[in-house]
Design a protein around this nucleic acid. Structure first.
Lengths: 241, 241
DNA sequence: TTTTTTGATTGACATATCTCAATTTAAGGG
DNA sequence: CCCTTAAATTGAGATATGTCAATCAAAAAA
């Protein structure tokens, strides 16, 4: 698939680009096995970019020369399918985006865009791959991350293919409150369309389920603020399918 | 998830267990970067097992101490979901099964069973992981395989979540004829239930779609022998969704 | 502020898909 | 070869879900 709109991004003039990876928040736990010299190599090839909400970070089908580390805001990675998108996951700070194409044909197999205003550090893939070769601990940690991602995807696929809409929305709500926003009354910065694209249904259906949950007292929705009142019942709905 | 039935398997008395990996068919292309000494390590820890059609190779939730290389027959790997299974893929000779749990918690995140009478070589995971650490080329090849698997899964998820039944069955038929049986009139050794579990629908629906395709002259079905007559139209159905 | 645009919501309707039950066919076992 | 069991097929009915169009609310622009 070839992209139509090109991903627009803006280099930040300098900003905290002067920081280095050694003490930067960007020291994601995947880097925990890297020594100072290795982190310095990452740091050398790294630059920071700002994205406004809605801006494309990269498009499915385009070359993938960077390891992307989200340092603020919120991004989504999604597959552009047949007429609609499927959001694979949301990426919050400090986490990274590293697609499977990098070890295959250096293409992106999904697109990424900023949901909120965001900043990201881009690291040259060549440096990353070099360190994978040189440092077995780092390689092992990387494989572990990829594996965890695969396991997460399994759960997601089962939810999407074997649960009905209520169960799928319940799953996404848990994902949002537990993994993404990490709080219970949370400000749902993603759109209803995103909610639908996360749960594999139409926007209208997603809205309707949310409304039903509200009417049953499972949660409250005030604008974009969502509070889950009855976690137990929501868990039940998730498990019932 | 904890398994109920334990995976049954039978050691083959000796058989071609006397072969070694160096000249064995088991030299899957993932091993192409291993030298003789490394292959010998694989060979040392390896043993061969026979499975009858229907037998479980391993169960979701159980410990995963082996790298499984299918040397004859046909196996399926599937997630046991909410009341039904989702077949992630079929594994034919010579290919291997290596789940994501091995780098996480040494558990299987899916089950595997023999679809046809099959044989497999089991290799100690510790040896495999050791070689990953010691040989960067091998590690890189492994990561590449994992990446290809992830990309395959993306296509699958899009098919399952964004296509209607006709498109999904079309996709599975292409998978069978192109990737698994590698011939056009092919003997579909998987059951209709398997066909349904591959395409995320009920067995009855799968049968009905197959019947429709037959009535429209897209293919012929004689018992378990399927011949796709109109590849172009089937492709069209796959793409239309 | 007014206007414009975008996103959210709702309802009515069409239909894709599943479930259940009944048959039919095929496969094994003795 | 008959008997038993499992798999495949078919039909009818229930329901989950999407589509379309209209309305409403909120945000951005002028």
């Amino acid at each position: 698939m070839v992209s139509t709109k090109s991903g627009e991004f803006r280099m930040v003039s300098k900003g905290n680009n002067s920081h280095n990876c050694t003490d930067c928040n960007c020291k994601v736990s995947i880097f925990k096995n890297l020594g100072p010299l290795e982190l310095e190599q990452i740091n050398q090839s790294r630059f920071q970019v700002n994205y406004k909400a809605g801006e494309i970070i990269f498009k499915q089908g385009t070359p993938a020369p960077y390891f992307v580390c989200v340092t603020s805001g919120l991004a989504k990675i999604y597959i552009e399918g047949y007429g609609k998108n499927l959001i694979l996951s949301l990426v919050k700070p400090i986490d990274y985006i590293f697609g499977p194409g990098i070890y295959v044909d250096n293409r992106h197999y999904y697109s990424a865009s900023a949901v909120e205003d965001s900043t990201a550090c881009l690291v040259d893939v060549a440096v990353f791959k070099k360190l994978i070769r040189e440092n077995p601990d780092f390689a092992e940690e990387f494989i572990k991350r990829v594996s965890l991602q695969a396991i997460f995807n399994f759960d997601q696929v089962i939810s999407l293919t074997q649960k009905q809409m209520h169960g799928r929305i319940a799953d996404v709500l848990f994902y949002l409150t537990d993994k993404i926003y990490s709080q219970n009354p949370f400000d749902m910065t993603i759109s209803r369309q995103d909610l639908a694209d996360l749960s594999g249904m139409s926007k209208e259906s997603a809205i309707r389920i949310l409304k039903e949950f509200k009417e049953e007292g499972i949660l409250t929705v005030d604008g974009n603020t969502v509070e889950i009142l009855n976690l137990k019942q929501l868990r039940q709905i998730s498990e019932t399918g």
